[in-house]
Design a protein around this nucleic acid. Structure first.
Length: 470
RNA sequence: GUCCCCAUCGUCUAGUGGCCUAGGACGCCGGCCUCUCACGCCGGUAACGGGGGUUCAAAUCCCCCUGGGGACGCCA
């Protein structure tokens, strides 16, 4: 069997949204799982709405998700000559004809049909007029009057559409440009696309496109239509729901592999498995297990997956990403001041406590600043740094100063001994220490935190806290 | 209006006629662990939209209803 070819064909009229990303992912995985090729085509025939910025945004997003196309990216607009050549071919073979009906006339036809409770469509009045080319004229496909178009959708199963449902669609506009349906067919054919996996909203286009394939006597590819993604309110995902361009997930602190894993599991499954490596996805993916109903986007589950990937992530990479977040939120200067070595040592303590990189950056803050810049949570101070606690801490600090090995075990032993001698509960001093050295009530373990901070910072912070008693 | 698609826990889903007194995961609730917060571990909550068939047997097949969604452009 020859190699399969899939493609992703977005129109560059905006950012790559999460739904589009999933479609791209599925197409990519379908190709990889069969040892095939995955191509990218930018459908920029709508010159009004297409922008180079949007094209770049799509490319960036695909790169972030690591969905690299195999061939050269095809720009549909650049292929207009080829599209017109095929239209001429259709005209010559009698499968297409010129039509001089105006938009207004066609609108009127549709209006009439609708009023009669029928499907609004062009009535084909120019079909047999034998019109030639001329200004203002469009080229339409001669849709068969009877019969139906049937195909076996890779995800939805058999779908049939009666020809009466379809009108003679426009292939070439009056301004000479080819329409979407024509261009798609020509490009998919020329690119050797064998499997078209696309959004649900194209189901209705498919029989029309098959009609074009037939008129051209070209092999018809396999089609599959994946359901869309819904917002929490079960309405179609849109900007209003706050979900967004793929790149926004990056800035919200998600790891691309978490997004890919999440998206893969949204509408596709492999038994009970939830976490997949990229290799597993590329090997295991199959259209048989694509669901046929729309699915709701669940941020909580994405967060959970992201947390899983953060725990596993390589420390150097994580450090870079956290630095990116700091740069983004606090500026270049702030990021430049970070002691990468401290960050690297703090990260293992923070990993199991963060769901996103943003949280990770936030949680790492107290490790990275000097004692003079440490922020203290006011409530924490009021609750745990009262006079008697401060007195205790002063004693503790003195004891700590005498410790020669500033290591976890030694710190723990010293602290335990300190409370035992005073017949105190460990808890009595744990929170005061924590607030002193981190400024907060929640943090990683006390002793591992102290070790990362180092003797000097730890003692300096314990000293500084005495000022709260003044 | 016409045509098309869809329908299992709150959510993502497993399930391809008997293994289903419906499984897993997220979430939620409770517990354990514990210096806080997480992580982890243990347990719990919770679903086959309704009605007819077919069959010895239906979440699984068929029909109807209901409810969602999509499409009906010289947009893609």
């Amino acid at each position: 069997m020859s190699q399969i070819v899939t493609r992703f064909a977005p129109s560059p009229t905006g950012f790559l949204h999460i739904g589009g990303a999933r479609t791209a992912l599925f197409s990519y995985l379908l190709a990889k799982s069969q040892g095939g090729r995955f191509e990218l085509r930018i459908e920029d025939t709508d010159r009004e709405r297409s922008t180079p910025e949007a094209t770049q945004a799509i490319l960036d997003a695909m790169q972030w998700l690591d969905l690299q196309p195999d061939g050269e990216t095809v720009f549909q607009h650049a292929r207009a000559d080829r599209h017109n050549e095929v239209i001429e071919q259709l005209l010559a073979s009698g499968n297409a004809y010129y039509c001089d009906c105006t938009k207004e006339q066609v609108d009127a036809m549709r209006e009439t049909a609708r009023a009669q409770g029928k499907k609004p469509k062009y009535d084909g009045s120019c079909r047999e007029r034998g019109l030639g080319p001329g200004p203002g004229r469009v080229v339409r496909l001669k849709t068969p009057l009877q019969g139906s178009v049937a195909y076996n959708d890779m995800v939805k199963g058999p779908i049939a559409t009666a020809c009466e449902e379809m009108d003679d669609m426009i292939l070439r506009r009056s301004d000479g440009t080819p329409t979407y349906n024509l261009a798609v067919v020509v490009d998919d054919h020329d690119m050797g696309v064998t499997h078209v996996l696309r959004g649900d909203d194209h189901v209705n286009n498919t029989p029309r496109q098959i009609l074009i394939y037939r008129a051209l006597e070209w092999d018809v590819p396999e089609f599959g239509h994946v359901p869309m993604i819904l917002g929490p309110d079960k309405k179609k995902l849109s900007k209003r729901h706050g979900a967004l361009s793929v790149m926004e997930y990056q800035s919200m602190g998600y790891l691309p592999e978490a997004v890919v894993n999440y998206l893969a599991r949204l509408g596709w499954s492999h038994g009970d498995q939830e976490v997949f490596t990229r290799e597993e996805l590329e090997q295991l993916f199959s259209v048989e297990h694509l669901g046929s109903s729309p699915s709701v986007f669940d941020t909580k589950k994405l967060e959970w997956l992201n947390a899983q990937y953060i725990v596993q992530a390589d420390l150097n990479r994580l450090a870079d990403l956290v630095l990116d977040v700091i740069r983004e939120e606090a500026g270049d200067q702030e990021a430049a001041n970070v002691d990468r070595d401290v960050l690297l040592r703090a990260l293992p303590l923070l990993q199991p406590r963060a769901k996103t990189l943003v949280e990770l950056a936030e949680a790492s803050q107290f490790f990275l600043v000097d004692v003079s810049h440490l922020q203290y949570d006011e409530k924490a101070v009021n609750k745990f740094l009262k006079p008697d606690s401060l007195a205790l801490l002063a004693e503790y600090t003195t004891a700590l100063r005498g410790l020669d090995r500033f290591e976890e075990e030694a710190l723990e032993a010293l602290t335990k001994e300190f409370v035992e001698q005073r017949e105190l509960k460990f808890k009595a001093i744990a929170q005061p220490i924590r607030v002193s050295i981190t400024g907060r009530t929640a943090s990683p373990g006390l002793f591992e935190t102290m070790v990362v901070l180092g003797r000097e910072q730890t003692l300096a912070r314990l000293d500084r806290v005495q000022d709260f008693g003044l």
